[in-house]
Structures are given as C-alpha cells and as structure tokens.
Design a protein around this nucleic acid. Sequence first.
DNA 1: GAACCGTGGTC
DNA 2: TGACCAAGGTT
Length: 300
Amino acid sequence: MTENPYTPAVLAWYERNARDLPWRRPEATPWEILVSEIMLQQTPVTRVLPAWQAWVQRWPTPADLAAEAPGEAVRMWNRLGYPRRALNLHACATAIVERHSGQVPASREELLALPGIGSYTSAAVASFAFGQRHAILDTNVRRVLARAETGVEYPPKAQTKAEVELAEALLPPEPAVAVRWGVAVMELGALVCTARSPKCVDCPIIDQCAWTLAGRPAHDGPPRRGQSYAGTDRQVRGRLLAVLRESPGPVAKPALDRVWDEPVQRERALDALVSDGLVDPLDDGTYALPGATPVAGDPG
DNA sequence: GAACCGTGGTC
DNA sequence: TGACCAAGGTT
C-alpha cells in the first residue's frame, strides 16, 4: 500500500468528535503526557481523568516525583490497578532526573529504555509530546485495522509483525499529519469501532471497511477468553496493598492476614509484593509501602 | 509465546 | 450474573 485511503475522512471525523482530554491540550507537557500514557495502560479514560489531575498537580515535573519515596506514588495511585505502574512512573522520574537532566527524552530509543515504557507508550510519547512520526498501535488501532483492512472482527491475540507493517504503511508522510492520524484512529476505535456493539452507522470509513463489506462476519476461531480474577493471587495482592495504602504508617502482620484465609496463597502474594518492590518488610516485623532508598554513605 | 499483573464498568 | 473489556509491559 502506497497511500492511505482513510486519512481525510478519519481526520475530519476527529475534528468534530474528539474528546477534550487534558493531556491532549496544546499546553500539556511531555511529562504530563507520559503520566497519562502510563495510567491509560489497561485502564479506561474515565477512571484515569481524576487520578491524572491529582497526580500532575502534586508532581508537576519528574523532579518533584523523584524527590518523594516510591511508596507515595503507590499510595497516590489509589485503585487504578496494576500498581507496578506507579513504581514504574517513580522510576521513570528518577531516571529522567539522573540521565536526562530532568527533561523527558524525545527519542523513541531513550523512551523505550525507561521502566514500564514499551513499544506502544514510546511511540505515543514521541508522537504526542514531540510531534514525531511513529506508528501508533494500541488495542483500538489494532481493532480498527483488523476490521477496515483485514476484514475480521478482532485482531489476533498477540500483536504480529504484519500489523506493525500495516500501521507503518498507513502512516501519512508529514509528521504533523501522522500525529493527528494516530490519535484520530485511536479515538475512532475508542468511540465508534468498539470491541462490542460497534457504532458502524457513525463510522466515517464504513464505505471502505473490509469487515462491513464482507457482511461483518462473526469472530472465527477460539473464544477470546479474558483472564479470571476471583481467587487469584492478583486479588490477594490487591487486598494486601489496599490495607497498606489506607494506613498512614506501617501495618502489623495480623492486619494483613485478615484479608485472606488461605495462608499459603496469602504468604505467596505478600512475598511477591515484596519482591516486586511494592511492599517493604521492616525490621520490626511490620510492613509498609516502600520508603526512600537509602543512599550509600548517607549518614541520615 | 504464554502467563502474569488490578480494578471497575457494561450488557 | 458472569464474561468481557479497558491508550500494555515484563518475564
């Protein structure tokens, strides 16, 4: 494919239908955009909005966050889910201060080297914060391309090289247009070309959609099974961490034991939290959110 | 490549 | 009501 047949219609649709999200405003800083992208990993926009507002107000720059204990980031994360992301964001802030003079790096390679930033997030920050031309391939874009181009209801479970090549082939040549295109396709997937009950009547490219032209065949293949949650270690970890978040100080072991009856699984989950750096076991046998890392030679 | 990692909303 | 889904990344 040498030309993207969707560009004008999708961009025009975005002009009229884009949500006014604060991290999309022109005055949003690269740090604010980076924070939004980490928060939006597997978490819906509606839940991210208030958390993002509070976060960037408290820590307007990487240096502000780096100056705090990582446990403060975990506490501030509240119930957004996947709390390792809070730790990652704190580690990002520290790395940005130490390696990049406090400025979010602009290159995709440097972004990829930051903790918790992978293929999608590096492309998103380089594109949305720095105006660079990169293929944006998130769950929304993958679904739009699966339908419009491949003619199937859902993309494969794992991202393929073919999807990356398709997304790159569709990228408009001008960087400024490519940036707009990326966010526009994501928005189309989020608002119209949704996973369940897509609003095809509102779709700006319905006339060119391979899936629609094929009669919108149902998903073919094994069921796309979501991960179970009830009874898993993840549920136990969530309960344990909730106790620590809601306590202003260290928590005694019996208070943690109360969240789950089965002792083997409970201990395994707690050990894993400690191993992940989300929980600090203190010398007196109590547990706390992670404190500041002691600096070698620091007399304090 | 598959499993794992939280939480809440939707139909 | 339970299965599915949400701007993924790491191991």
